[in-house]
């Protein structure tokens, strides 16, 4: 049963530290994850916990302070078109048409192909995401949902080894969100891409992913828990919602997130009760104030 599979993307002891005037701020620490080819992984966690940071590090847009990230046998050192990124705001260039936006990437990747081939690729993906009739509209004239469709088409048209999605549906209304989830999962299953997506929507995570990676709260966030979702594919949103497992998964995820929250509150209370200076002893004044502050905490406990 335990057949050795080589991970496609391996993050080991990945670390992100920002130097701030108040000293180093550790965002991620000891972040370990193995992603296998063809998997759909979602990162879930509270906002500000560092899940987007982890994703942008894989994308190469954010430097890695410690540890390594290895994609398909090569260490990640910077951004490249082999990782298609779909940003939260679609980041289209508003002065170009949807077609030109996708073509911009296609030209970089298929520079050896003919003009005709490139055109076919761009038109194929725009048709797949449902922008067949709007492909020659300027991005500025598209609706938010249409722009995100175009963003997805652009990422897929690069024929990347891997797809990285940073809360791609966060700014959309529920119905558009459902529609685009379908578009995404459809393209993903057809192209057999490996995908990592950041979300804070529990239902979205269960519906889309093979595994949900739960991140602990920052600072120094790491992988807290991993949940396997073994619904068969292709999935139907309605039929998985009729299964008992769906609610077990949901409960698992939500209870993890709630635990994180209460831990965070505990930490906050602790750090309030202690003086900001880490030195033990300290001045007479410090000792007095510490003793005074400890009292109410003791009562609470």
């Amino acid at each position: 049963m335990t057949e050795y599979k080589k991970p496609f993307l391996e993050l080991s002891q990945m670390r992100k530290v920002y130097e701030t005037p108040k000293g180093p701020a550790v965002i991620l620490d000891d972040f370990n994850l193995k992603v296998y080819k063809g998997e759909f992984i979602t990162f879930i966690g509270h906002s500000g916990c560092g899940k987007s940071t982890a994703l942008t590090m894989i994308a190469g847009l954010n430097s890695i302070s410690g540890g390594v990230a290895i994609l398909d046998g090569k260490e990640i050192t910077g951004p490249a078109p082999d990782r298609g990124v779909v940003f939260q705001s679609p980041c289209l260039l508003p002065w170009m048409t949807a077609y030109d936006n996708v073509m911009l990437g296609a030209k970089q990747v298929y520079f050896h192909g003919t003009r005709q081939q490139r055109r076919e690729i761009v038109e194929y993906f725009l048709t797949q995401v449902g922008l067949k009739d709007a492909m020659h509209k300027r991005a500025a004239d598209l609706s938010q949902g249409m722009r995100q469709r175009c963003g997805i088409a652009r990422a897929f048209a690069l024929n990347p080894k891997m797809l990285l999605l940073d809360e791609p549906f966060g700014m959309l209304d529920q119905l558009t969100k459902y529609e685009l989830q379908e578009v995404l999962i459809d393209l993903w299953s057809r192209d057999q891409k490996t995908a990592v997506m950041v979300t804070h929507d529990v239902d979205e995570a269960i519906y889309l992913s093979d595994r949900v990676v739960m991140l602990t709260n920052g600072p120094a966030a790491k992988v807290g828990d991993v949940l396997e979702i073994d619904f068969e594919r292709p999935r139907s949103r309605l039929s998985i919602m009729k299964e008992k497992r769906y609610y077990e998964y949901r409960e698992h995820l939500i209870s993890f997130l709630e635990n994180c929250e209460s831990e965070k509150a505990n930490i906050a209370r602790k750090s309030n009760s202690e003086p900001s200076s880490p030195r033990q002893g300290g001045s007479f004044f410090n000792r007095i104030t510490r003793r005074n502050r400890e009292k109410p905490v003791a009562v609470n406990a």
């Binding site: 994308a59 190469g60 951004p79 990782r83 940003f87 260039l93 002065w95 990437g105």
Partner: peptide, 29 residues
Amino acid sequence: VDKDHLNVAKVLKLGPATRIWKIILPSSL
């Protein structure tokens, strides 16, 4: 220039000429 647009240029690994011509110039016009 919008940082997101520059990120797009980074992800696509656009050369300096394309980056100036397709992204920087139009957005600062």
